[in-house]
Amino acid sequence: MQSAPGSDRDLIEAYISSSIRISFSRVLHYVEAKTDSSHEHVLACLAEETKKLLKTDSTIFMPIFSKWHQLAPVASASLLHKLYGNKLRPFLDHAEHLTEDVVSVFPEADSLERYIMTVISLACEEEIVKDNCLRKLISFEVEKKSGTLVLRWLNAKLGRILEWVERAIQQERFRATSKELESLTNLVRCMGECERYPEG
């Protein structure tokens, strides 16, 4: 495989950066228009479309650039990871509960990140280069956030169940007490009747 001089590699990376940014911007506009008339969350749809963009880029364009710049796919995938991450992060920061939006966005974002990592791994022939490239990615940490939200959801559900059980127990106690009071009232009434009609 040929390796272009440093200046040529810089030019290739600059072209990739410009091309990817333009393509991502177009995808974003397309997704925003699409989700206006559908029930899909924009970030879920954006993750799916970004993945398609990277697949096209990796199979059609990057093999050509890789002839002169071996890590061209890494530059492309890393930039898409950053661009999507910039859109995703505010959503992650404000996700406090396991809502329908969270359920739709998180799997798509995680799938995109895993695919990006696969593209980077395949482009790096040396293990040390791969590890270095992957470390530079600022992870979405969707799995970690998902675990937190699921635990919070389970705790909330458990709290409601405990409240329901407590109410049920109190109702049973109230019913038992009511029956005891009713029996006591009947007994007092009977005793009163007996006093009204003494023997003899």
Score class of each variant (00 low, 15 high):
E100P: 02
P107R: 01
V103N: 07
P90V: 14
G85F: 01
L88Q: 06
F106G: 09
R89T: 15
H97I: 12
S104M: 07
L98D: 13
A95D: 14
E113R: 01
E113V: 02
R89A: 12
V103S: 06
E113D: 09
H97A: 13
H97D: 15
V102Y: 06
V102Q: 03
S111K: 04
R89G: 03
N86I: 13
D93M: 09
L98Q: 06
P107S: 05
F106A: 14
E96P: 01
D101W: 01
S104T: 13
L112G: 05
V103I: 14
H94C: 06
F91R: 13
E108I: 02
D101E: 15
G85T: 12
V103K: 14
V103M: 13
D110R: 02
K87C: 11
P90C: 10
S104L: 07
L98V: 09
S111H: 03
H97T: 15
N86Y: 03
D101Q: 12
E100K: 14
E108P: 02
R89L: 14
H94N: 15
L98C: 10
D93K: 12
E100Q: 14
K87R: 11
H94Y: 03
D110F: 01
L98E: 10
G85E: 07
H94M: 09
H94W: 01
V103D: 11
N86H: 09
F106I: 11
N86W: 00
K87D: 08
L88S: 09
H94P: 00
S111Y: 00
H97P: 02
H94A: 14
L98M: 13
F106T: 11
N86G: 07
R114H: 04
L112I: 06
S104H: 12
E113M: 05
F91I: 14
K87G: 01
A109D: 11
V105L: 05
H94F: 00
T99C: 03
E113K: 03
E108H: 03
R114W: 00
F91V: 15
T99H: 08
N86S: 12
K87W: 00
H94V: 09
A95M: 05
L88V: 11
N86Q: 13
T99V: 05
D101H: 07
S104D: 15
A109F: 00
E108C: 04
F106Q: 07
P107Y: 03
P107W: 01
S111T: 08
R89C: 06
D101T: 04
R114A: 08
S104F: 01
D93A: 12
T99G: 05
S104K: 13
N86P: 00
T99Y: 06
V102E: 08
S104R: 13
E108Q: 14
P90D: 10
E108K: 08
G85W: 03
R114M: 05
A109C: 02
L92E: 13
R114I: 03
H97S: 14
G85V: 12
D110E: 12
S111M: 02
G85M: 08
T99I: 05
R114N: 07
K87P: 02
D110L: 04
N86R: 12
L88M: 09
R89H: 09
E100Y: 08
L98H: 10
K87S: 12
A95G: 11
R114E: 08
V102M: 04
A109N: 08
